[in-house]
Design a protein around this nucleic acid. Structure first.
Lengths: 240, 240
DNA sequence: TATATCAACTTGTTTAAACAAGTTTTATTG
DNA sequence: CAATAAAACTTGTTTAAACAAGTTGATATA
């Protein structure tokens, strides 16, 4: 449950849009109306609205009002688009997600790894190779590097369960932001071996750098997705 | 040039980060220091900072400060990731971008088009098929649908130049926000014919819905990218 | 010395007020 | 009746102030 008032208002409005109380192409009540409804200041309300703009639910128009531009997304397909673990994604889509570890080892970042990940040469790392399945279908082949001094004590047994649970709840690491790049790459022998690619010879590759609350990049992960089940959503606001 | 004060401050700070005046892992000066430097209120400064958070340049830490997490991106590769036209992207990458029209016609949205694009059945549309090249290499095959009542008067000749220039500068349409979905799809006969795919048999497909300042979706475009030159960047902030 | 506490920082949230700027409605004027 | 002007809305920007909450370092205490 959110503590901040603007987050509460944001959630209420978001819900009203999703349930159709505010319909697409229609205007939301004016700021003044909503201020009275929520007993809040204008700034607080506007902050909630700006969160709705960010996720592409509404569009503000100076002098006119706030217009709803929500369109329900197709929930049938598997969707990635937020920072969430594989387990969280699976649960949200009502599927059974399982993982198996292919490889786990310690290593030192050499030039090649450094160029790929952004870690400094000589940095001690954990390397983890995992296969993620949904309803027994192989979906994602993951290559992860973790800084040893941050993710200290990581073992194969821990990775068997949930790495993120260990990092967040046991080690107390706060995961804050993540930079991601999506590309399409030709399959490797490993991809062919573990993912059931069929006629496809390419994959969707999501490379991400994850930062903790000290601003330190402690994880680099390359997620190689089966093309059939990959979908990445985004919302862009035009620069003025 | 930006008119709003917070945008000016944002640009100055952004530039200082890009040029290395504020280095990764280091803290920016505190709010109070920057407030004095820019002669602005705390809110205005914080708004500039929050823009930097959005683009993944800095990370704020309560009680500690604002940490720089910028890492220069590889400018060698062609990057898409904002709302910008093909011409703008080309220019930013120092390449010569050209386009050729494969097909242009008027049509009415049927069930199939409606499901694909989100336009209502019966909506009169323009359909435009274009091939984008960079330095004479075919890169993107574009399928676009425009609402006739919004993009009125669009012709093959206009499309030959710049559709966006016509929409924005001639018709005076304000393009505000855009929802995009990235998927990977198996190539079609058309893809094979126009894009020089080589050994690849898949493409990166960016589907986007674009809204004007009235909150009306007036364009649906499916951009089919050559996988070798596709790169999509994103920055996510962890939900609390 | 080691520990606990407090003070002085940092960013996070909320309220209030004023003015700017764009849009729509109403009233006025010709 | 039509055109214009004014008023009454709308959102956009900026300032100021107060308090909350997290981190750090100095101080006092045992």
């Amino acid at each position: 449950m959110p503590k901040a008032k603007y987050e509460q208002i944001y959630k209420i409005l978001k819900n009203k849009i999703e349930t159709g109380e505010y319909k697409p192409q229609e205007f939301l009540p004016s700021e003044n109306t909503l201020i009275i409804e929520f007993s809040c200041s204008r700034n607080t309300l506007r902050r909630a609205i700006s969160e709705l703009v960010k996720i592409g639910y509404v569009q503000t128009m100076q002098g006119k009002g706030v217009c709803c531009i929500f369109q329900p997304t197709d929930k049938a397909t598997f969707t990635l688009g937020t920072i969430e673990s594989f387990a969280e994604s699976a649960k949200r889509n009502g599927l059974i997600g399982t993982s198996e570890i292919i490889k786990f080892c310690e290593c030192i970042a050499d030039k090649k790894i450094s160029d790929l990940t952004g870690f400094k040469v000589g940095e001690p790392l954990y390397y983890l190779q995992r296969l993620h399945l949904m309803n027994d279908m192989p979906m994602i082949l993951n290559h992860s590097y973790f800084r040893q001094d941050i993710a200290k004590g990581l073992t194969c047994e821990i990775a068997q369960n949930s790495v993120y649970n260990y990092l967040e709840n046991i080690l107390g690491i706060n995961i804050v932001s993540s930079k991601r790049t999506v590309t399409v790459e030709y399959m490797t022998e490993l991809d062919k071996k573990y993912l059931d690619l069929g006629e496809y010879n390419c994959l969707a590759v999501v490379s991400s750098q994850t930062f903790n609350s000290d601003g330190i990049m402690f994880e680099y992960t390359e997620s190689r997705h089966h093309p059939r089940y990959f979908r990445f959503q985004d919302n862009a606001i035009r620069k003025k």
